[in-house]
């Protein structure tokens, strides 16, 4: 069994144009944790995730992920439009199956199951230009889920979705997570969303991003994504994080 803990040690990222996106960021995410990352726009959240995914090299510092750096245990949901325009929805989801060596029937079953989960079964044969922005984002979520990889890196995955769909996907994500205990890093601008989902919330400062605070979320699992919002402790935590974010902006 691989150790799917992730360690980021004093990682700094300076781009070629001189922009420093991350400044000495350190965090350790234990295996099976659901971690959320909050922070102002442009503070380096995406950069941090790309470094973890191996799509970007840190300028200095160290990143430790399992699997000798091949990272075939990590699935990424990108912030921007990322599904291939030349593939049908079904084929796009099947991109997540690379390296799994499933036979045709099994692959089809996995893709159908994931499309069902994100409510796109009737669009399986459509091309991306026939979908809305939120539907495209759901395809890329289905692609990540289909991969069955044990670490999920999600960059504002639900940002483009309406509130009802979002809440539906929150409970699906939690259901999957509670069953499989994947390690999840979930970037978001939604404070409530992060409290509903995460075990632990990292708050980052404005650029160059540093970790300003780390908040434990005490609510028991399994959680009810709607009922939880009525809990007075939920409101207090949201307010506390709101305060931390304001501090982080000023820091």
């Amino acid at each position: 069994m691989l150790d799917h803990r992730m360690i980021v040690e004093a990682v700094t990222k300076r781009f070629e144009d001189g922009t420093t996106a991350l400044n000495e960021v350190s965090l350790e995410i234990p295996e099976g944790q659901f971690a959320a990352v909050l922070g102002p726009s442009g503070c380096g959240k995406t950069t941090l995730l790309r470094i973890l995914a191996g799509l970007e090299e840190p300028t200095s510092g160290r990143v430790e992920v399992a699997g000798d750096g091949r990272r075939d245990h990590m699935a990424m949901v990108f912030q921007e439009q990322s599904i291939f325009p030349w593939m049908r929805v079904r084929e796009n989801v099947a991109v997540g199956l690379h390296g799994l060596h499933l036979d045709r029937a099994n692959a089809r079953a996995v893709v159908d199951e994931q499309l069902d989960l994100v409510g796109l079964q009737s669009f399986a044969e459509a091309y991306p230009h026939q979908l809305s922005g939120g539907m495209k984002q759901r395809v890329s979520i289905a692609r990540a889920f289909a991969s069955k990889r044990s670490v999920l890196l999600m960059d504002e995955p639900f940002a483009a979705l309406d509130e009802q769909t979002k809440i539906g996907l929150h409970s699906e994500l939690l259901r999957i997570w509670e069953r499989t205990r994947k390690t999840v890093i979930f970037i978001t601008h939604g404070i409530e969303e992060s409290v509903v989902l995460a075990d632990c919330i990292y708050v980052m400062t404005a650029r160059p991003g540093r970790i300003h605070a780390c908040v434990e979320v005490p609510f028991a699992r399994p959680r009810d994504v709607v009922a939880l919002r009525g809990d007075p402790a939920f409101g207090r935590l949201v307010v506390e994080i709101w305060g931390l974010l304001r501090e982080a902006m000023a820091a």
């Binding site: 990590m74 990424m76 990108f78 921007e80 991109v95």
Partner: peptide, 23 residues
């Protein structure tokens, strides 16, 4: 972004050419 997706999901070699570069 499409090259990043290919890399992130391990689309390599002949499938990289067939599924990403050629189309």
């Amino acid at each position: 972004i499409y090259l990043d997706v290919a890399k992130a999901y391990g689309v390599r070699g002949p499938s990289y050419v067939r599924e990403v570069l050629l189309p």
